[in-house]
Design a protein around this nucleic acid. Sequence first.
DNA 1: TTGTAGGCGTTATCAG
DNA 2: CTGATAACGCCTACAA
Lengths: 363, 363
Amino acid sequence: MANMKEIARMAGVSLGTVSHVLNRSAPVREPLRRRVEEAVQAAGYQPSALARGLRRDKTNMIGMVIPDVTNPFFPAVVRGAEDTAFANGYRLVLCNTDNDHSKELVHLNELRTYLPSGLIVIPSDFSDLTRQAESYQRSGAAVVCVDRLPRRWHGDSVTAANEQGAHAATRYLIQLGHRRIAAITGPLHLTNSEQRLRGFRRAMAEADLPIAPEYLQESSFDLAGGRSRALLLLRMLPRPTAIFGGNDMIAMGVLQAIRELGLRCPEDVSVMGFDDLDFAALINPPLASVLQPGYQLGATAARILLDRVHGDGGPARHIVLPTELRIRESVAPPRASEAGAGKTRAGGARAAGRTTPRSRKKQ
Amino acid sequence: MANMKEIARMAGVSLGTVSHVLNRSAPVREPLRRRVEEAVQAAGYQPSALARGLRRDKTNMIGMVIPDVTNPFFPAVVRGAEDTAFANGYRLVLCNTDNDHSKELVHLNELRTYLPSGLIVIPSDFSDLTRQAESYQRSGAAVVCVDRLPRRWHGDSVTAANEQGAHAATRYLIQLGHRRIAAITGPLHLTNSEQRLRGFRRAMAEADLPIAPEYLQESSFDLAGGRSRALLLLRMLPRPTAIFGGNDMIAMGVLQAIRELGLRCPEDVSVMGFDDLDFAALINPPLASVLQPGYQLGATAARILLDRVHGDGGPARHIVLPTELRIRESVAPPRASEAGAGKTRAGGARAAGRTTPRSRKKQ
DNA sequence: TTGTAGGCGTTATCAG
DNA sequence: CTGATAACGCCTACAA
């Protein structure tokens, strides 16, 4: 690979001139600039990212630290971040933490030796990012948290409107006529789970509906957890007529539990998810869910990070992106014997019925 | 961040000694080595990956170039690669090509400025990797192709046993008693699609079953393509009794088309996929599919790459990892009126029946 | 406006 | 076995 010196020789100018042409760091007279550009073309020259980074004390790399690419929600975030980064000449170094905060720490430490321009982090469970982040920020690298926040995080963040999303979803169930609504939350030490629970509670409170303590179950964010908690819930008397899952995987577990017990969704139990993963629309019954804009989350985080890199020194930004309720056939009004048995908003069930599944049975 | 000079000062030794301790590039007398190690500890010193790379002409980065992280099959490959890379002190720089070979080229070119130790590539459509790869190899960086291969690729590769997988899947359908089996392949310019088609053909030929030309449809690797081709197939007379999808997304499209036409799976049409994505087992009916070991694909590619980095100069390796047939409820024997109407292996359908879905209907 | 020189943090070479 | 010293490729004062 050619280097600057060679380009300088080819163009018959000095090293500095080449650099100035490349970086527009000083005006260069037309004929010289032309010669330089031609030499660059001819040699297929590209400046060494390493040497440049070493000199500038900062590379065009961005560390992307996430729990697990294999988890269906995260790839969209990664993709959003990569697109924005790439469009601006930055590259993503991908690190999986497996939700292990000590592995996260290791990644954070090692990434530093690349002098990345910044970090986009979806924190692990019990992440203790704050100290590391400060150290990065001191050295001029930006850190943006996405999706969930570490406790006491005061830096930039991009999250979905978890509270609102859960609130809208719960309210929709209530409007359908449900009164006994259970929730299987994700791990409550995660801010996103906590916010979703808060939205659920608010909607219930607004409708003056009680929440039986045993109707609130905490689970890991996966199918197995959802299934086991759902099995508990579905055996309770009275049985909840709707279950709100903390994410789509939990909701999938609920669907599985429903089938195992010989019950039917939505006839016996309505199920609502959160995330709106691709498969939510494809399963049977199609899963109603709260769409979380994964791609936008990542893209926005990268945007903020780049702004910081370009000198934005403003106060920490806390972007909250809207969620969107996606009604599908896994939710329906409760059986007639259950419906309206309580304080239901007038016309709610009927109005909501518009977006309710066509009654045509599929299979 | 401290640098080597400072460590040398702290330990009261020269720069070279520190380097020797760090790299074991020369034996260092115990007391000195101790002092150096203590200084490293105390300062939390980590060598600069940039300076090191600049000097050594090679970094511990691996470029991972894939079509799209968002495509559900690829994250597993990425994860496998990342785990193996990380365990050996390497990092992954992730690049999405969107299957666009010119974008792939851009990534390949720009990655080079990092002096990565190598590249793991899932080639884009019409990838013309060969020239780029040679240039990398000349500069001592290894290139390993995964999943699909560019035409005329002679370098290291790791792929799944596409031919065998498709063969086993098709043979299973035949054993169930199907005779009119259609296939919706992925894009046939992709080697994996082509191999799967070959496996399909071989199984059909071995059973002396004809393949009507219109029963072979080519599609993009997505739901929409699968759906539209399936709509064609399902309207043909006679209608195929089983459809083999080139991947799970195509198979999902087939299921969708089946529902749209008011048909039922597996009663009217059996459906087989390829990949065995996570959701295959979760949908309704659960999708029979050919498991492709994504994680292993990635891990193996990284392993080979590291071997190359560590000096393995042997001939190109072409690893083919086994696939595994996953029978689920989307496949069943054809209706009695169809079954056995042709030359079927004796007892085939019955023997296969063992692994056939329990007849208990779910929902 | 152009050229020169020093140094970023390492490693490798080569004397001692 | 240890310690100087010269690159690696680039950027940027500063000098011309």
